[in-house]
């Protein structure tokens, strides 16, 4: 029976269950097909490679953890996780309008909550400081302060209609002149500030502080970052591993 290249490759993968008759077909095909013969060599190499990989010894605590995972508490956790994985149905809008009313103020609270959480996340240091400040012990107000405040509040209020000391000294025309001068100064001062603001380089928000660490091994990055870098760089990320396993050789120059 003649097989296509794809069927032969499937059989190479399923080699464990290939019968003797199939082996003859496979061998016949491989003898006449260089591409499949190369595929077979690579497949055999991969099998050999996997077979020669060092077997990792399971950690000693693994059996204990497996047993613990079967206990009731973990079963509950799994049940909760399974329920969460089912997904949540969105509440239909009609329900909200019917039961909460269109202008119910409670409908605005989720957005407010979201905004507050977002603000906290944007400024985690400030949030931490606020939280710690709130945890500080509150000092009791001294009795003397209470007494002074009470006395101040009990004092009768006297409102003066006289002008401010500076203007009180000046005659009426001079007072008007002073007011005009102050107005002109305020006008020009404001205009100068506007002009300066429009020509000043945009300072923007302060630069976000980042804690930067430099790593050599892609393993110290997250798995997604390591995968991305390995693919983009053509496999350079594996160089250190390969070099450690390399057989002695002269220094590698530029491409042959």
């Amino acid at each position: 029976m003649l097989y296509s290249c794809q069927e032969i490759r499937d059989r190479l993968i399923e080699r464990a269950v290939v019968t003797a008759a199939h082996e003859v077909d496979v061998a016949t095909h491989l003898a006449g097909c260089a591409e499949c013969a190369g595929y077979a060599r690579r497949a055999a190499g991969l099998l050999r490679g996997f077979g020669e990989l060092e077997r990792l010894v399971p950690p000693a605590e693994l059996p204990g953890r497996v047993v613990a995972a079967c206990h009731e508490g973990y079963l509950q956790d799994r049940a909760v996780a399974a329920l969460e994985a089912i997904g949540r149905l969105e509440m239909p809008e009609e329900f909200e309008f019917t039961h909460l009313g269109e202008h119910d103020p409670r409908r605005a609270s989720p957005a407010e909550l979201e905004a507050r959480i977002d603000a906290d996340l944007r400024d985690p240091q400030g949030q931490l400081q606020r939280r710690f400040a709130m945890r500080l012990e509150r000092l009791a107000v001294p009795a003397e302060l209470d007494a002074r405040v009470a006395a101040e509040l009990a004092r009768p209020v006297t409102r003066s209609t006289a002008p401010a000391p500076l203007l009180r000294l000046a005659p009426q025309p001079a007072r008007r002149l002073a007011l005009m001068a102050a107005g002109i100064a305020a006008l020009f001062g404001g205009a100068w500030l506007v002009v300066r603001g429009s020509f000043a380089p945009p300072t923007g928000e302060p630069e976000l502080a980042l804690h930067v660490e430099y790593v050599d091994s892609p393993a110290e990055l997250g798995p997604m970052a390591a995968l991305l870098l390995g693919g983009l760089s053509g496999g350079i990320t594996e160089y250190e591993t390969l070099a450690r396993a390399a057989e002695p050789q002269p220094p590698a120059g530029e491409p042959r």
Binding site: P124, V212, Y214, V215, D216
Partner: peptide, 16 residues
């Protein structure tokens, strides 16, 4: 919490 942590690495011409 804290300042965002960034890990930077290079491989060939690429920076990640």
């Amino acid at each position: 919490a804290g300042v965002p942590t960034v890990r930077v690495s290079r491989a060939g011409s690429w920076t990640i």
